[in-house]
Design a protein around this nucleic acid. Structure first.
Length: 720
DNA sequence: CATGTCTCCATTTTT
DNA sequence: TGGAGACATG
């Protein structure tokens, strides 16, 4: 035991050790990039268990992604010969699902509630807007979805929204109607999973105290990415005897646009950690020059908790800067360098090409394809998001829950069985009149002659299906559904249907794998419960991005999706003003700081070698744009940079560069700066014009005041 | 109902 | 430039 115990602590540095063996207290762990964050988190859990301070059921560990949760579990079981079944390790959404399945009655949900993924939610909203005769020009479904989700993410129900203008009031009406529709159909979207759990625990003190007593240790990963609702959610589980450990890095907060609230870190310090702050600053990933560049850059951000990475490794190579004439030449350079590295023995999957926006991948892919270099692009459709898989799942959903109108509309005429738009519209009207679901209405419409023939056929088909799968295990049931629904036959007849058929077969396999997985073991183990659990799994874990992974291939991805990964060599591309930092970020509150954090994340992905590239001309939106070098390039100390072509440093500035320089140095006002105006409040500088007393500044004050040009001579402005 | 044509638009993404 | 979605036509 003793030797075992010391072995899990072996090799930890003093700060890591302090975090892992912290007494029963709450603490904030500020964990820099590459500082062994996941290791600390998992070793902490192992340490608590091994020393008998807590039993597995006393631990709640929350992550953002399934990948992170899985990795934690894998590393934990590698450290401890322990059945981790009692531990609650999972994503916010996964754990909420678990909670709501167990306490569906207390939460006011049907036992077999369905989970809507973003695409399901969007079509539910479209359906709703149509039934409310909303003007979808004025109220775009995407915008409505965004409105609903961002309010849920802040913990606001429709009745709590402060709507002072008719537009917002209408949005709040849609929100409220949407929630009603979801309740009627037994559907729950992603944000709702959290909000429901939050409300249930807020209202039900018996339940809350039960969990507070149970969980003695709460651990949260990537805390800087939590939104307001998630923090509120977490607090319900924290009782008087719970210790919370939040691990995060404010410098790597790059998800403000989807609700992440870095202020949670400060709140957490105030609410729980007090002055218990442990900084993990030793970096085990990158060489010194790379870290110096990252440190210098991020130090320009005003709002940080403060942290400086260091490494015991040597300085390593300088950062290579390449200024290309245009985007194609940038791609050509990367191809040549990657080929050379590969020849010298670097595995292709140790080389990553990062970009700010997905559109940049096209030119790169073209060049790589032409050179015959295998590559893999991250992003895109995932397994459970493919249309054929969603169709198949819709049959399951309708069988599990006949009130699921989304599933009904998706499959009632797919494969085509002669039920046209007219029939469907009549059915929808009838259902609305009867305050009933489409399925129930369709069942009753048998009596009416004419026009319902196709519908009657569909009802009969589903009923026969329901009969046939009784007693079948999930994979067999799915296989049966694929045949009798006509889905298989449909794709067989299609000329490019082979891939889709393969995916449908894969779905059967996925079900077979699932029923062997501990995830599937819920309180209820009847067939219906199993099916509901599988559907939840499909929604919560959309699966791998695409096939063709695993093989040795160059990695192409956005900077956002590179977070958490590392590579021997990184090409950081498109370092141009307007692209990185992105144009629109300039108008956002704290936009530049977030872009800088993004740049920080990008730099710290590289272990040995980092290339930064810029294209002086780039095809964007069908037009050639002349881009000046990103300010981030000049924010890296020149001594760390090594130009690899003659164009750098530019001795003769282009006019645009001169303008940029004057904006950078002569005046105290800079792009992206936060300022306060006596009347308009705080805003961010998005443009500058002129010199000295003639200077005008364009500022985005957000909200009611919006974007304004102000003459510096008259406007009283102060920096914030 | 499938397919062609037009128009509009354009960060970042997990659950 | 090119993809997605709306609309029209055989």
């Amino acid at each position: 035991m003793k030797s075992n115990m010391s072995s899990i602590l072996d090799g930890l540095n003093p700060e890591q050790l302090a975090a892992v063996t912290l007494p029963h207290q709450s603490a904030l762990i500020l964990a820099g990039a590459g500082s062994g964050k996941t290791r600390v988190l998992t070793t902490r859990i192992a340490w608590l268990l091994q020393t008998g301070q807590v039993s597995p059921s006393g631990i709640l560990a929350v992550t953002f992604t399934n990948k992170a949760a899985k990795e934690m579990l894998v590393r934990l079981t590698a450290m401890l010969p322990l059945d981790p079944r009692g531990i609650w390790i999972g994503t916010f959404h996964g754990l909420s699902n678990r909670l709501l399945r167990t306490h569906h009655r207390e939460a006011g949900l049907p036992r077999l509630f369905q989970i809507l993924d973003s695409a399901d939610q969007l079509s539910a909203i479209k359906r709703l807007l149509k039934s409310m005769n909303a003007d979808t020009e004025k109220f775009e479904p995407k915008k409505v979805q965004n409105f609903i989700n961002s309010n849920k993410d802040t913990g606001l129900r429709s009745d709590k929204i402060e709507a002072y203008d008719p537009y917002t009031r209408r949005l709040a009406d849609f929100y409220s109607a949407y929630d009603e529709q979801c309740n009627r159909e037994g559907a729950v979207d992603f944000a709702e999973l959290l909000l429901r759990s939050d409300e249930m625990l807020a209202r039900n003190s018996v339940l809350r105290e039960h969990y507070q007593e149970r969980f003695r240790h709460l651990l949260v990963d990537e805390f800087q990415d939590t939104n307001r609702l998630q923090y509120r959610w977490l607090k319900h589980f924290a009782g008087a005897s719970s210790a919370l450990m939040a691990v995060g890095d404010d410098d790597q907060s790059i998800y403000a646009f989807r609700g992440a609230h870095t202020g949670n870190m400060n709140d957490f310090q105030r609410d729980y950690a007090h002055d218990n702050l442990i900084k993990l600053e030793q970096n085990y990933r990158s060489h010194g020059n790379i870290l110096d560049a990252a440190n210098a850059l991020i130090s320009l951000n005003q709002t940080r908790l403060g942290k400086n990475l260091w490494t015991a490794a040597g300085p390593g190579e300088l950062i290579r800067v390449y200024i290309a004439y245009n985007d194609q030449e940038e791609a050509r350079f990367i191809v040549e360098e990657a080929q050379a590295l590969h020849r010298e023995g670097t595995a292709l999957n140790e080389i990553a090409v990062l970009y700010r926006s997905n559109a940049q991948s096209r030119v790169l892919e073209h060049a790589l394809f032409g050179a015959g270099i295998p590559y893999r692009v991250y992003g895109g459709l995932r397994f459970f998001e493919r249309q054929e898989v969603k169709h198949a799942l819709a049959y399951l959903r309708l069988l599990a829950n006949p009130d699921d109108d989304s599933a009904f509309t998706r499959i009632v005429n797919f494969p085509a069985r002669g039920i046209g738009a007219r029939t469907l519209e009549q059915l929808i009207d009838a259902a609305q009149g009867a305050q009933s679901s489409l399925w129930r209405t369709a069942c009753n419409s048998d009596a009416k002659p004419g026009g319902t023939k196709g519908l009657a056929g569909f009802v009969a088909l589903m009923r026969a299906m329901q009969e046939a799968i009784i007693g079948l295990a999930l994979p067999e049931a799915i296989a049966h559904i694929l045949q009798t629904s006509g889905l298989m036959a449909h794709y067989q007849a299609e000329k490019d249907g082979q891939d889709r058929m393969d995916n449908l077969h894969e779905l059967v396999n996925a079900a077979a794998t699932f029923i062997r997985d501990p995830d599937a073991l819920a309180e209820e183990d009847d067939d219906e419960g199993m099916m509901a659990n599988f559907l939840a799994h499909a929604a919560l874990e959309a699966g791998m991005h695409q096939a063709g992974a695993g093989h040795d291939a160059l990695q192409l991805m956005t900077v956002h999706s590179a977070k958490g990964l590392e590579f021997q060599t990184v090409f950081l591309t498109g370092l141009e003003e307007g692209l990185f930092p992105s144009e629109q970020s300039l108008a956002e509150h704290d936009g530049i700081e977030e872009e800088r954090r993004l740049m920080y994340v990008a730099i710290t992905r590289a272990r040995q070698r980092l290339y930064v590239t810029q294209a002086q001309n780039r095809m964007l939106h069908g037009q050639t744009r002349y881009g000046i070098a990103s300010r981030f390039l000049s924010e890296i100390p020149a001594v760390l940079l090594k130009p690899v072509n003659a164009a750098y440093p530019a001795h003769a500035d282009t006019p645009l560069q001169t303008v940029a320089r004057s904006q950078h140095s002569n005046s105290p006002w800079r792009m992206g700066m936060n300022v306060r105006h006596a009347k308009f409040g705080t805003g961010v500088v998005i443009n500058l014009e002129g010199q000295g007393n003639d200077m005008r500044i364009q500022i985005n004050f957000g909200g009611a005041h919006g974007i304004k040009w102000l003459a510096l001579e008259y406007a009283k402005l102060e920096a914030v």
